[in-house]
Design a protein around this nucleic acid. Structure first.
Lengths: 156, 156
DNA sequence: CGGATCTCAGATACACTGACATAA
DNA sequence: CTTATGTCAGTGTATCTGAGATCC
């Protein structure tokens, strides 16, 4: 272990923004999934619960659009959350194709739990950066994301 | 499509660095895999060829360490590259466990092709950012990555 | 009819795990 | 005996594709 003096990353890779992004995202993803797995949760759960908390009950298609989660995966994640009593799925009386997904009190409690855990994870992720640097990073990523979100026809 | 006025991202997510990182990485990853797939290549191929070009012939274990690719996957990717004649695998006379992997002239040509394609992809990825902003982003990500690389015992 | 919604079954890329034989 | 290497088979996850059923 410890791979000492392993700065053997090829310079062609080290300066490549797409490489830097995917590699840092890999660590971010690992921190998040590990941290959430300890309490039996997934990233999908937080995304869905946070959306339901902020916007109120929604159809699964709406949830997919807001969270960026694919239709198919909203189905499975909602099954999971409903199985734990964190959300309820009821048919929409005005449109019988739709399910209206609603967050329950237990779901709100769960959301608080996830929010706290995620706050600690952000701290770990951004440890080497100062507060203004963190803001700058968030600002740059936000602009990148906004740019690519537009004209993304593949989002459900 | 066009998902008009779809700023329906929950604020809890929109400001979360781990979310911003993984989402932008998702677009970066898509641009890269799509761009490389058009010419029948993968991200692994570029990582391996670039490493071989910069550091010269290496064992598969070394390649795994430098590129961050898992041992098992180095095997498969090397098979792939060798099948196309981009690298050659020869036994190490001084250590008969090892294969020495060497890039071929065809491999160098392939690497140039991939480098060009990736340059165009970076342009697309970073389109909304000015040159100094790109530098700032690269700097911040580099520091994040260096921090998490240390003490990462899971790397092969 | 076109178009939206939900569901399931499967594919893909990437990362990882475990096991094994071989050889240092 | 312990460690490093290469190989293979298989797991897991986030994402996406395609199909079908239902309903507006």
């Amino acid at each position: 272990m410890d791979t000492p003096a392993d700065d053997g990353t090829p310079t062609r890779l080290a300066g490549l923004p797409s490489w830097l992004l995917t590699q840092t995202a890999r660590y971010a993803h690992r921190l998040v999934t590990d941290g959430l797995a300890e309490i039996g949760a997934r990233g999908y759960h937080y995304r869905l619960l946070a959306t339901l908390d902020e916007y109120g009950p929604a159809s699964q298609a709406d949830l997919g659009r807001r969270t960026g989660i694919h239709f198919s995966d909203v189905v499975a994640a909602t099954n999971d959350l409903a199985g734990h009593g964190f959300v309820e799925r009821t048919p929409d009386p005005t449109d019988r194709r739709r399910n209206i997904v609603t967050i329950t009190p237990a779901g709100r409690h769960r959301l608080d739990q996830l929010t706290q855990r995620l706050a600690r994870i952000q701290e770990e992720l951004l440890a080497p950066l100062s507060a203004p640097e963190r803001d700058r990073l968030v600002g740059l990523l936000t602009r990148l994301l906004a740019h690519h979100r537009r004209g993304d026809t593949t989002r459900p």
